[in-house]
Design a protein around this nucleic acid. Structure first.
Lengths: 147, 147
DNA sequence: CACCATTAAATCGTGCACAATGTATAAATT
DNA sequence: AATTTATACATTGTGCACGATTTAATGGTG
């Protein structure tokens, strides 16, 4: 039983999944020094960005936004609550729901991280047009493969 | 002390790092069912791809290729050796160096995974031209930010 | 030869990330 | 009212991923 294949599938260099994978990790490594100063991990940074943008989210909404499971979010949000970055308040109407907001400490840290995207933009070596292309392509791809 | 900022930095949607991050994880999730059948994790799959492509690599060379540290590779390569996928042989000339090759079991699994890139290509919803752009852009970006 | 810096690889600790499982509440059905 | 079903969230276990430390082998240099 033959599997239809062209030679492009053999070379590591032709694996788009590979470049996306290593690029994602390279970005995290690049952000790490500044995030470390702020006492944040990369996913925690994204939580702050999301909450700063949306003001208020349930755990469920945050999970859909960042495409993360409860098993990942729960311990992370607990750590962030313990550090006074965010508040977790159980809804009075529906006690299953936990509502998340930024505390002032979390707002401050999010503001102190504002230059990170610019750091990436300048280090990436991409032109403005290429940057916009890449935002467009990754957004399109993500939306298609995550249904 | 004001930090120079434009509003693009506020919205989560404008974070390229965010889209790359979620896209990378979405690809891994998409590959997971088939990789699970093969008893492989995603990084292990990339190790097989790299070794199938290059025939023979030292741990150091593999780490530079996949941009992974010894602390990540060592336990993973041990697991793959235990399962008979790869062979780890210490070089006779320089005993610090460990040389890696694919065993037939590993070759087979790599061949059985050949359709994965095509799965991504068709699910991504990108045109051939967009796909090539994306390979080009991610490669350029990765090489610039990883020095 | 001895000394020191370098390098290859392994080990350890912390934090995601996900699957699988468990628990509790809410809504729908009987 | 009682039972089922679905949903929200927590817990557990495995496997990366990285930084930091450790061990061991190599390669100069005096």
């Amino acid at each position: 039983m033959e599997i239809p294949v062209n030679n492009d599938n053999i070379k590591l260099d032709n694996h788009l999944c590979f470049y996306i994978y290593v690029t994602s990790r390279a970005i995290q490594r690049m952000y790490m020094p500044r995030l470390k100063q702020l006492g944040l991990t990369y996913p925690q940074y994204l939580v702050l960005v999301a909450l700063y943008d949306k003001q208020k989210l349930t755990v469920n909404e945050l999970g859909r936004l960042l495409d993360l499971e409860y098993g990942t979010l729960s311990p992370m949000l607990k750590r962030m609550t313990d550090r006074g970055l965010i508040s977790k308040v159980r809804s009075t109407e529906d006690e299953r729901i936990v509502e998340l907001t930024l505390l002032s400490e979390g707002k401050l840290k999010r503001q102190q991280a504002l230059q990170l995207p610019q750091l990436l933009a300048s280090n990436s070596g991409l032109t403005d047009e290429e940057w916009q292309q890449m935002v467009h392509l990754t957004e399109k791809m993500f939306k298609n493969i995550s249904e």
